[in-house]
Design a protein around this nucleic acid. Structure first.
Lengths: 165, 165
DNA sequence: CTTGGAATGTCAACAAAGCTGACGTATTAT
DNA sequence: ATAATACGTCAGCTTTGTTGACATTCCAAG
């Protein structure tokens, strides 16, 4: 019996299994963004706005630079999104207190309202998937996702919601 | 059976837990596409080409219409991608035998080579994540992802790799 | 056999959201 | 004083998505 898999090839590491995981990831991500996308399509906003709003809500008073690191886009790209959000009164940009070069971002009341609307839709699907899959599956889900992240992003993932970023 | 999964849904269904899952999904998807993206950036191709190549490899002789349903884009968008792939000799488009309106798509030798290169990179990360997380986590991962899909996409997900689509 | 509709391809125009490069302006650090 | 940092902005380009319109080919129903 020849073993095409060099080394420790258990059954769950077969190419076929891994491929199915890749496809599951692809299809699931579509579901993941589907509900917020539908809401955003009715306004002049897109997925990029959603991401900015999400992480500003999660880390109130975050700086532009910090947000850049989380989102992984250029400042020009983020600035375009942020500018419209500030103009539309959804995000507030305050000059830093200790370091006046920094801008600290937070949602306004209207921004928080939109965030809640988007978040509710996205969480509803996630919650239903969690409920259907059960707590052990959820734990595994989280474990694998974390293992898939880039090293640097895993660090940032854990830092979110903490006091001193 | 003690700690977190007590049958009491309140813990793992808390907003905080669900939000963390959403963020994990966001960061993990970046890792998921990172390696193929790096390879594609050295050529004149992007993520859209990768997706087309992947699903043509998985369902040889698939039709354009079938591919449209899987990828969820417009025919114009897919056609642009497909045209360059055909022109570059990575994909072959054959007129259908029973229904001559249909075009059946398959990878050429060169196309299969690129597919392997992209697939190897993506699978390596996936495989490593699977290995690190362990088989039970992988099972949970797959279960939750499937529960996150849109109904119609879940159907398509299961249909891939079967004989009669 | 004619014809309606399905599957496909293609043209044009546009939008969202990413990118690079260059430059300006505060502000802070050295 | 000078250098580095944080931010904003202008200009231009790319990828990948969208509509809408239209031609071609072909199957199937009348």
């Amino acid at each position: 019996m020849e073993d095409i898999h060099t080394g420790d090839a258990s059954h769950y590491l077969s190419d076929e299994q891994v491929r199915q995981g890749i496809e599951a990831m692809f299809f699931a991500y579509r579901g993941f963004t589907h509900d917020p996308d539908r809401i955003l399509a009715t306004m002049a906003y897109g997925r990029a706005h959603h991401r900015a709003i999400h992480f500003i809500a999660r880390s109130p008073s975050t700086t532009v630079n910090n947000l850049l690191g989380i989102l992984g886009v250029t400042k020009q790209s983020l600035n375009r999104v942020l500018r419209t959000l500030v103009e539309d009164g959804l995000v507030e940009s305050r000059v830093g207190k200790s370091d006046k070069r920094e801008r600290h971002l937070r949602l306004t009341e209207a921004g928080a309202r939109l965030e809640r609307q988007l978040s509710d839709a996205q969480r509803a699907r996630m919650r239903e998937a969690y409920r259907a899959a059960g707590p052990e599956a959820v734990a595994g889900f989280r474990t694998v996702l974390e293992a898939m992240m880039e090293h640097e992003l895993r660090r940032k993932y854990h830092a979110i919601g903490e006091q001193d970023p």
